[in-house]
Amino acid sequence: MSRRAKESGATIIRYRGVVKRYGAFEALSGIDLDVHAGEVVCLIGPSGSGKSTLLRCTNALETIDGGAIEFEGARLPRDERALREVRRRMGMVFQSFELFPHLTALHNVAEGPRTVLRARRAEAEDRARAMLAKVGLSDKATNYPAALSGGQQQRVAIARALAMEPDVMLFDEPTSALDPETIGEVLSVMKALADEGMTMVVVTHEMTFARRVGDWVAVFDAGRIVEQGPPRQIFDAPTTERTRDFLSHLGWQGETL
């Protein structure tokens, strides 16, 4: 689906001139990017180019040093309590899954609704069961993370984020720590989510996923976006040298369908 068609939706996230520094090092040097409702925006680029940093700034796990991030029309608040409210409306999935090892899969997924949304235990567990079913892991509800494969853990992590009914899902290299066999199961879940119309911002090295599922792709390099556009442009007809270099380094030969 082209961006034109999706642009009729609201702008969920707006990045304007976002700057982030770690001491003397500038990790983000002025990022401008829009994420519209229902869109899948993929952030690609070499390691250390700032993609994950931008994602962590989006839900204020890191604070920005310049520019602005707007979420659903309002700038991100500074107050911790107000920030928690904002975070509840965003879901985040981490490269290292970060499931809570002392809780079963079911309780991991129910933890958000119980503790943050203050749902009653039965209600939270019902919702958790539904989310686990959605990611295809109903039979693993009583397992602890230690007993699950990487792909299964990541799917539980996705279910945990979904249980909060977020307006946008942020994925930080969700498949980078997975075995090749299990990458597929996670990407399928993400694609299904996208097909349902979830707004997603995905930092990924899975170019095939970005090409097929993404609606908009931003190429990062050294803290800036060097090129952004629909996947067809980025992958088939990139307009900048940097993008071409990056893709050729990955051995991207173009996708033959």
């Binding site: 962590r56 839900n59 796990l61 911790e80 309590r81 928690r84 409210e85 975070r87 509840r88 965003m90 879901g91 985040m92 981490f94 290292s96 970060e98 809570f100 090892p101 002392h102 933890e111 958000g112 503790t115 943050v116 992590a157 945990r160 984020a161 909060m164």
Partner: peptide, 27 residues
Amino acid sequence: VRPGQTRASLALGMSRTQILRRIVMPQ
């Protein structure tokens, strides 16, 4: 306890006390 656990809990919207009590201390 891994800092990632705190980050994941913050991402869900938990407060610092909730994180300490429910996620960090048990581990």
